[in-house]
């Protein structure tokens, strides 16, 4: 059975220059291991292939049951000079949550 991440997790997008930061937190902590298995750095990079042009690093906070993806070269050259309408990439949390798992 395939479903969208949005059904089981929430996310917030943050920016630092040309780096996009996406958190991924399960609604039910019991889904944490499932997310760890399914949402790999490769999957994130593939899913956001038009957005992320650099490396993706995954950080894990096991006590809080939270995951974070730090995505380099992912904000159109940088927040201040990007041509994108959403130059900060604030809406991209919901792009991650479109992923089918």
């Amino acid at each position: 059975m395939s479903r969208k991440l949005a059904e089981i997790a929430h996310s917030r997008a943050g920016d630092k220059g040309n780096t996009l930061i996406l958190s991924l937190i399960p609604f039910d902590p019991a889904d944490f291991d499932f997310l760890m298995e399914k949402v790999t750095t490769e999957k994130v990079k593939e899913h956001l292939v038009h957005q992320i042009h650099g490396e993706v690093v995954r950080y894990v906070l096991p006590d809080l049951k939270a995951i974070q993806f730090t995505c380099f070269n992912a904000l159109g050259g940088g927040v201040t000079t990007s041509l994108a309408m959403d130059s900060h990439g604030k809406s991209l949390s919901y792009a991650l949550l479109e992923m089918e798992v």
Partner: peptide, 15 residues
């Protein structure tokens, strides 16, 4: 949920 989202907001490396 709200505090977890904010803890990781704009953090490049949480450690």
């Amino acid at each position: 949920q709200t505090v977890k989202e904010q803890l990781l907001y704009e953090v490049i490396d949480p450690s």
